[in-house]
Protein backbone atom coordinates (compact mmCIF):
# COMPACT_ATOMS: atom_id res chain seq x y z
CA UNK A 1 0.00 0.00 0.00
CA UNK A 2 1.21 3.42 -0.79
CA UNK A 3 2.01 6.01 1.80
CA UNK A 4 -0.80 8.10 3.24
CA UNK A 5 0.03 11.76 2.99
CA UNK A 6 -3.09 13.25 4.45
CA UNK A 7 -5.74 11.81 6.69
CA UNK A 8 -8.74 13.77 7.89
CA UNK A 9 -10.75 12.19 10.67
CA UNK A 10 -14.18 13.38 11.72
CA UNK A 11 -13.35 17.03 11.07
CA UNK A 12 -15.88 19.56 12.31
CA UNK A 13 -15.49 23.25 11.54
CA UNK A 14 -17.89 25.97 12.63
CA UNK A 15 -18.25 29.70 12.29
CA UNK A 16 -19.56 31.43 15.36
CA UNK A 17 -21.59 34.31 13.96
CA UNK A 18 -24.07 36.58 15.71
CA UNK A 19 -26.87 34.59 14.09
CA UNK A 20 -25.64 31.37 15.64
CA UNK A 21 -23.15 28.64 14.95
CA UNK A 22 -22.80 27.92 11.25
CA UNK A 23 -21.74 24.30 11.06
CA UNK A 24 -19.95 24.47 7.75
CA UNK A 25 -18.21 21.11 8.05
CA UNK A 26 -20.00 18.58 10.20
CA UNK A 27 -17.73 15.58 10.59
CA UNK A 28 -15.92 14.49 7.46
CA UNK A 29 -13.23 11.88 6.99
CA UNK A 30 -11.07 11.00 4.02
CA UNK A 31 -7.50 10.14 3.24
CA UNK A 32 -5.12 10.84 0.42
CA UNK A 33 -2.19 8.75 -0.75
CA UNK A 34 1.05 10.05 -2.13
CA UNK A 35 0.82 11.04 -5.76
CA UNK A 36 -2.94 10.78 -5.80
CA UNK A 37 -5.27 13.44 -7.23
CA UNK A 38 -8.46 13.76 -5.27
CA UNK A 39 -11.44 15.85 -6.29
CA UNK A 40 -13.88 17.40 -3.85
CA UNK A 41 -17.15 18.19 -5.60
CA UNK A 42 -20.14 20.05 -4.24
CA UNK A 43 -22.14 23.20 -4.67
CA UNK A 44 -21.50 26.47 -2.89
CA UNK A 45 -22.12 26.14 0.82
CA UNK A 46 -21.36 22.42 0.88
CA UNK A 47 -18.25 23.01 2.95
CA UNK A 48 -15.59 22.15 0.40
CA UNK A 49 -13.63 25.38 0.67
CA UNK A 50 -13.88 25.38 4.46
CA UNK A 51 -12.40 21.88 4.43
CA UNK A 52 -9.38 23.12 2.50
CA UNK A 53 -8.95 26.15 4.74
CA UNK A 54 -9.12 23.86 7.77
CA UNK A 55 -6.33 21.71 6.37
CA UNK A 56 -4.24 24.81 5.73
CA UNK A 57 -5.26 26.18 9.14
CA UNK A 58 -6.13 29.43 7.46
CA UNK A 59 -9.54 29.81 9.06
CA UNK A 60 -10.19 33.28 10.26
CA UNK A 61 -12.27 34.50 13.13
CA UNK A 62 -15.10 33.58 13.76
CA UNK A 63 -14.29 30.21 12.22
CA UNK A 64 -12.54 27.45 14.09
CA UNK A 65 -11.93 23.73 14.00
CA UNK A 66 -14.33 22.33 16.57
CA UNK A 67 -13.10 18.78 16.72
CA UNK A 68 -11.45 16.09 14.67
CA UNK A 69 -7.94 15.30 13.53
CA UNK A 70 -5.92 16.17 10.48
CA UNK A 71 -2.81 14.04 10.01
CA UNK A 72 -0.31 15.33 7.53
CA UNK A 73 2.52 12.85 6.92
CA UNK A 74 1.49 11.14 10.15
CA UNK A 75 1.62 14.29 12.26
CA UNK A 76 -1.47 15.85 13.75
CA UNK A 77 -1.60 19.46 12.60
CA UNK A 78 -4.81 20.53 14.31
CA UNK A 79 -2.95 21.45 17.49
CA UNK A 80 0.09 22.91 15.79
CA UNK A 81 0.87 26.50 16.69
CA UNK A 82 0.77 29.16 14.04
CA UNK A 83 4.58 29.44 14.17
CA UNK A 84 4.95 25.78 13.31
CA UNK A 85 2.33 26.08 10.59
CA UNK A 86 4.37 28.83 8.95
CA UNK A 87 7.03 26.26 8.15
CA UNK A 88 4.52 23.85 6.69
CA UNK A 89 2.36 26.27 4.75
CA UNK A 90 3.82 27.13 1.39
CA UNK A 91 6.60 24.64 1.95
CA UNK A 92 4.96 21.27 2.41
CA UNK A 93 1.33 22.15 1.77
CA UNK A 94 0.60 24.82 -0.81
CA UNK A 95 -2.59 26.26 -2.09
CA UNK A 96 -3.90 27.79 -5.28
CA UNK A 97 -6.87 30.04 -4.68
CA UNK A 98 -9.95 30.53 -6.75
CA UNK A 99 -9.70 34.10 -7.84
CA UNK A 100 -6.39 35.01 -9.48
CA UNK A 101 -7.50 38.64 -9.66
CA UNK A 102 -7.60 39.18 -5.91
CA UNK A 103 -5.19 36.64 -4.47
CA UNK A 104 -2.00 38.27 -5.69
CA UNK A 105 -0.67 41.38 -3.99
CA UNK A 106 -1.01 44.26 -6.47
CA UNK A 107 1.89 46.33 -5.09
CA UNK A 108 4.60 43.67 -5.38
CA UNK A 109 5.98 42.27 -8.62
CA UNK A 110 5.21 38.70 -9.59
CA UNK A 111 8.89 37.89 -9.04
CA UNK A 112 8.87 39.33 -5.51
CA UNK A 113 5.89 37.21 -4.62
CA UNK A 114 7.49 34.00 -5.85
CA UNK A 115 10.83 34.91 -4.25
CA UNK A 116 9.17 35.55 -0.89
CA UNK A 117 8.25 31.88 -0.58
CA UNK A 118 11.63 30.66 -1.77
CA UNK A 119 13.61 32.92 0.55
CA UNK A 120 11.38 32.12 3.53
CA UNK A 121 11.47 28.36 3.17
CA UNK A 122 14.69 27.54 1.37
CA UNK A 123 16.87 30.36 2.64
CA UNK A 124 18.33 31.12 -0.76
CA UNK A 125 20.01 34.43 -1.47
CA UNK A 126 18.02 37.07 -3.31
CA UNK A 127 19.93 36.52 -6.52
CA UNK A 128 19.51 32.73 -6.43
CA UNK A 129 15.85 33.12 -5.51
CA UNK A 130 15.27 35.32 -8.51
CA UNK A 131 16.85 32.72 -10.79
CA UNK A 132 14.60 30.11 -9.26
CA UNK A 133 11.57 32.37 -9.68
CA UNK A 134 12.39 32.69 -13.39
CA UNK A 135 12.73 28.93 -13.66
CA UNK A 136 9.36 28.48 -11.99
CA UNK A 137 7.68 30.92 -14.36
CA UNK A 138 9.21 29.01 -17.25
CA UNK A 139 7.95 25.74 -15.78
CA UNK A 140 4.38 27.00 -15.65
CA UNK A 141 4.63 28.18 -19.23
CA UNK A 142 4.93 31.96 -19.05
CA UNK A 143 6.64 33.28 -22.19
CA UNK A 144 9.87 35.32 -21.77
CA UNK A 145 10.03 34.81 -17.97
CA UNK A 146 13.20 36.92 -17.63
CA UNK A 147 11.18 40.03 -18.39
CA UNK A 148 7.91 38.90 -16.93
CA UNK A 149 9.44 38.32 -13.51
CA UNK A 150 9.51 42.05 -12.84
CA UNK A 151 5.93 42.67 -13.98
CA UNK A 152 3.15 43.57 -11.59
CA UNK A 153 0.00 41.45 -11.38
CA UNK A 154 -2.06 43.99 -13.33
CA UNK A 155 0.17 43.40 -16.31
CA UNK A 156 -0.81 39.73 -16.36
CA UNK A 157 -4.04 38.33 -17.78
CA UNK A 158 -6.29 36.04 -15.74
CA UNK A 159 -4.78 32.83 -17.05
CA UNK A 160 -1.25 34.10 -16.54
CA UNK A 161 -2.02 35.16 -12.98
CA UNK A 162 -3.33 31.70 -12.24
CA UNK A 163 -0.08 30.32 -13.67
CA UNK A 164 1.86 32.72 -11.46
CA UNK A 165 -0.16 31.44 -8.48
CA UNK A 166 0.80 27.91 -9.46
CA UNK A 167 4.44 29.00 -9.67
CA UNK A 168 4.27 30.38 -6.12
CA UNK A 169 2.52 27.25 -4.85
CA UNK A 170 4.96 24.88 -6.50
CA UNK A 171 8.20 26.76 -5.93
CA UNK A 172 9.06 24.76 -2.79
CA UNK A 173 7.96 21.47 -4.30
CA UNK A 174 5.19 20.83 -1.80
CA UNK A 175 4.03 17.31 -0.97
CA UNK A 176 0.44 18.40 -1.10
CA UNK A 177 -1.17 20.97 -3.35
CA UNK A 178 -4.67 22.20 -2.63
CA UNK A 179 -6.34 23.88 -5.59
CA UNK A 180 -9.57 25.60 -4.64
CA UNK A 181 -11.61 26.11 -7.81
CA UNK A 182 -8.44 26.99 -9.74
CA UNK A 183 -10.22 27.33 -13.07
CA UNK A 184 -13.67 28.63 -12.19
CA UNK A 185 -12.87 32.23 -13.06
CA UNK A 186 -11.19 31.32 -16.34
CA UNK A 187 -12.26 30.68 -19.91
CA UNK A 188 -12.54 27.09 -21.11
CA UNK A 189 -9.47 27.37 -23.28
CA UNK A 190 -7.39 28.74 -20.40
CA UNK A 191 -8.96 26.20 -18.05
CA UNK A 192 -7.76 23.49 -20.40
CA UNK A 193 -4.23 24.93 -20.28
CA UNK A 194 -4.20 25.11 -16.47
CA UNK A 195 -5.52 21.56 -16.06
CA UNK A 196 -2.87 20.27 -18.46
CA UNK A 197 -0.28 22.16 -16.47
CA UNK A 198 -1.43 20.56 -13.23
CA UNK A 199 -1.30 17.12 -14.82
CA UNK A 200 2.23 17.73 -16.10
CA UNK A 201 3.43 19.08 -12.76
CA UNK A 202 1.96 16.09 -10.96
CA UNK A 203 3.91 13.77 -13.20
CA UNK A 204 7.12 15.77 -12.93
CA UNK A 205 7.10 16.45 -9.20
CA UNK A 206 4.85 13.62 -7.93
CA UNK A 207 2.78 16.08 -5.91
CA UNK A 208 -0.46 14.94 -4.31
CA UNK A 209 -3.31 17.21 -5.31
CA UNK A 210 -6.69 18.04 -3.83
CA UNK A 211 -8.81 19.69 -6.48
CA UNK A 212 -11.89 21.47 -5.26
CA UNK A 213 -14.51 22.26 -7.87
CA UNK A 214 -18.19 22.24 -8.69
CA UNK A 215 -17.55 21.13 -12.26
CA UNK A 216 -17.85 17.39 -12.71
CA UNK A 217 -16.17 17.69 -16.09
CA UNK A 218 -12.98 18.97 -14.50
CA UNK A 219 -12.70 16.15 -11.96
CA UNK A 220 -13.45 13.47 -14.55
CA UNK A 221 -10.33 14.45 -16.38
CA UNK A 222 -7.60 14.39 -13.77
CA UNK A 223 -8.88 12.91 -10.51
CA UNK A 224 -8.43 9.33 -9.51
CA UNK A 225 -10.58 9.66 -6.44
CA UNK A 226 -13.67 11.81 -5.86
CA UNK A 227 -15.41 12.99 -2.71
CA UNK A 228 -18.92 14.39 -3.10
CA UNK A 229 -19.87 16.87 -0.38
CA UNK A 230 -23.24 18.26 0.57
CA UNK A 231 -24.42 20.18 3.62
CA UNK A 232 -21.05 19.85 5.35
CA UNK A 233 -20.91 16.07 5.00
CA UNK A 234 -19.35 13.60 2.60
CA UNK A 235 -22.24 12.04 0.72
CA UNK A 236 -20.27 9.64 -1.40
CA UNK A 237 -16.65 8.75 -1.95
CA UNK A 238 -15.11 6.56 -4.59
CA UNK A 239 -12.83 6.27 -7.58
CA UNK A 240 -13.81 8.47 -10.50
CA UNK A 241 -15.27 5.44 -12.28
CA UNK A 242 -17.39 4.62 -9.21
CA UNK A 243 -18.79 8.12 -9.09
CA UNK A 244 -19.47 8.51 -12.79
CA UNK A 245 -20.56 4.99 -13.71
CA UNK A 246 -21.95 3.57 -10.49
CA UNK A 247 -23.22 6.41 -8.32
CA UNK A 248 -25.03 5.25 -5.21
CA UNK A 249 -26.18 8.48 -3.64
CA UNK A 250 -29.21 10.36 -5.04
CA UNK A 251 -27.29 13.64 -4.79
CA UNK A 252 -24.48 12.34 -6.99
CA UNK A 253 -27.11 11.08 -9.43
CA UNK A 254 -28.80 14.47 -9.35
CA UNK A 255 -25.54 16.22 -10.19
CA UNK A 256 -24.93 13.88 -13.11
CA UNK A 257 -28.44 14.44 -14.42
CA UNK A 258 -28.36 18.21 -14.24
CA UNK A 259 -25.44 18.76 -16.61
CA UNK A 260 -25.90 18.66 -20.38
CA UNK A 261 -23.63 16.24 -22.20
CA UNK A 262 -21.89 17.68 -25.17
CA UNK A 263 -20.49 14.50 -26.59
CA UNK A 264 -23.64 12.42 -26.67
CA UNK A 265 -25.45 14.38 -29.35
CA UNK A 266 -28.78 14.19 -27.56
CA UNK A 267 -30.91 17.11 -26.55
CA UNK A 268 -33.04 16.03 -23.65
CA UNK A 269 -34.59 18.21 -21.04
CA UNK A 270 -32.31 18.67 -18.05
CA UNK A 271 -33.42 17.24 -14.75
CA UNK A 272 -32.57 19.79 -12.07
CA UNK A 273 -32.27 19.12 -8.38
CA UNK A 274 -35.27 21.00 -6.99
CA UNK A 275 -35.02 23.31 -3.99
CA UNK A 276 -31.97 24.87 -2.41
CA UNK A 277 -29.22 23.66 -0.05
CA UNK A 278 -29.93 23.49 3.70
CA UNK A 279 -29.27 26.26 6.18
CA UNK A 280 -26.23 25.18 8.16
CA UNK A 281 -27.12 27.25 11.21
CA UNK A 282 -29.90 24.78 11.83
CA UNK A 283 -28.77 21.75 9.86
CA UNK A 284 -31.49 19.13 9.36
CA UNK A 285 -31.48 16.31 11.87
CA UNK A 286 -31.40 13.52 9.36
CA UNK A 287 -29.74 13.38 5.98
CA UNK A 288 -29.12 16.96 4.73
CA UNK A 289 -30.32 16.05 1.25
CA UNK A 290 -33.78 14.86 2.40
CA UNK A 291 -35.63 18.02 1.36
CA UNK A 292 -34.38 17.80 -2.22
CA UNK A 293 -34.19 14.02 -2.60
CA UNK A 294 -36.74 12.41 -4.93
CA UNK A 295 -36.46 9.11 -3.05
CA UNK A 296 -36.67 10.47 0.51
CA UNK A 297 -38.33 8.22 3.09
CA UNK A 298 -39.61 8.95 6.54
CA UNK A 299 -36.45 7.79 8.25
CA UNK A 300 -34.29 10.16 6.17
CA UNK A 301 -35.54 13.24 7.99
CA UNK A 302 -35.25 11.63 11.41
CA UNK A 303 -31.84 10.00 11.50
CA UNK A 304 -28.69 10.59 9.56
CA UNK A 305 -27.69 7.44 7.68
CA UNK A 306 -24.36 5.69 8.27
CA UNK A 307 -21.86 4.98 5.53
CA UNK A 308 -22.43 1.84 3.53
CA UNK A 309 -19.37 0.28 1.96
CA UNK A 310 -19.98 -0.72 -1.60
CA UNK A 311 -16.46 -1.94 -2.13
CA UNK A 312 -12.91 -1.24 -0.99
CA UNK A 313 -12.82 2.38 -2.14
CA UNK A 314 -16.46 3.22 -2.63
CA UNK A 315 -18.81 4.31 0.14
CA UNK A 316 -22.00 6.34 0.36
CA UNK A 317 -24.20 7.78 3.07
CA UNK A 318 -27.80 6.92 2.22
CA UNK A 319 -30.64 4.98 3.80
CA UNK A 320 -31.49 3.44 0.45
CA UNK A 321 -28.36 1.33 0.74
CA UNK A 322 -29.56 -0.15 4.04
CA UNK A 323 -30.44 -3.82 3.97
CA UNK A 324 -34.05 -3.20 4.98
CA UNK A 325 -34.73 -0.34 2.59
CA UNK A 326 -37.25 -0.86 -0.20
CA UNK A 327 -35.78 -1.80 -3.53
CA UNK A 328 -36.30 1.29 -5.62
CA UNK A 329 -35.84 1.70 -9.32
CA UNK A 330 -33.64 4.74 -9.76
CA UNK A 331 -32.52 6.73 -12.73
CA UNK A 332 -28.85 7.02 -11.88
CA UNK A 333 -28.14 9.67 -14.46
CA UNK A 334 -25.24 7.67 -15.84
CA UNK A 335 -24.67 8.29 -19.51
CA UNK A 336 -21.69 6.60 -21.03
CA UNK A 337 -20.01 8.09 -24.01
CA UNK A 338 -18.77 5.91 -26.82
CA UNK A 339 -15.08 5.24 -26.57
CA UNK A 340 -13.32 4.34 -29.77
CA UNK A 341 -10.59 1.92 -28.90
Amino acid sequence: MSEKILEVKNLKTSFYTHLGEVQAVRGISFSLNKGEVMGIVGESGSGKSVTSLSIMKLLQYPGEIKSGDIFFKGEDIVNKKNKEMLNIRGNEIAMIFQDPMTSLNPVYTIGDQIMEVIIRHQGLSKKKAKEKAIDMLRLVGIPSPEERVSNYPYEFSGGMRQRAMAAIALSCEPDLLIADEPTTALDVTIQDQILKLMKDLKEKLDTSIILITHDLGVVADICTKIVVMYGGLVMEEGTSKDIFYNPKHPYTMGLLKSIPRLDLGEKKRLIPITGTPPDLIKPPKGCPFTARCPYAMKICSLHAPKYTKIDENHKAMCWLLHKQSPNMKMDTGVKRGIVNE
Binding site: S157, G159, M160, V188, T189, I190, Q191, D192, Q193, L195, K196, D215, L216, G217, V218, A220, D221, S240, K241, F244, Y245, L256, I259, R261, L262, D263, K335, R336, G337, I338, V339, N340
Partner: peptide
Amino acid sequence: KALLSAIPIPDPDVTHKRESVTLEGE
Protein backbone atom coordinates in the same frame (compact mmCIF):
# COMPACT_ATOMS: atom_id res chain seq x y z
CA LYS B 1 -12.64 23.09 -32.90
CA ALA B 2 -10.27 24.25 -30.18
CA LEU B 3 -13.09 25.67 -28.07
CA LEU B 4 -15.04 22.44 -28.30
CA SER B 5 -12.11 20.26 -27.40
CA ALA B 6 -11.34 22.38 -24.35
CA ILE B 7 -14.65 21.56 -22.70
CA PRO B 8 -14.18 18.95 -20.02
CA ILE B 9 -16.51 16.00 -20.46
CA PRO B 10 -17.94 14.46 -17.29
CA ASP B 11 -17.08 10.92 -18.31
CA PRO B 12 -13.66 9.58 -17.27
CA ASP B 13 -13.28 7.04 -20.09
CA VAL B 14 -14.20 9.46 -22.83
CA THR B 15 -12.09 12.28 -21.49
CA HIS B 16 -9.01 10.06 -21.19
CA LYS B 17 -9.32 8.76 -24.70
CA ARG B 18 -10.15 11.85 -26.67
CA GLU B 19 -7.57 13.92 -28.42
CA SER B 20 -7.61 17.50 -27.41
CA VAL B 21 -6.35 20.50 -29.31
CA THR B 22 -4.98 22.83 -26.71
CA LEU B 23 -5.09 26.42 -27.75
CA GLU B 24 -1.80 28.09 -26.94
CA GLY B 25 -1.55 31.64 -25.75
CA GLU B 26 -4.26 34.15 -25.14
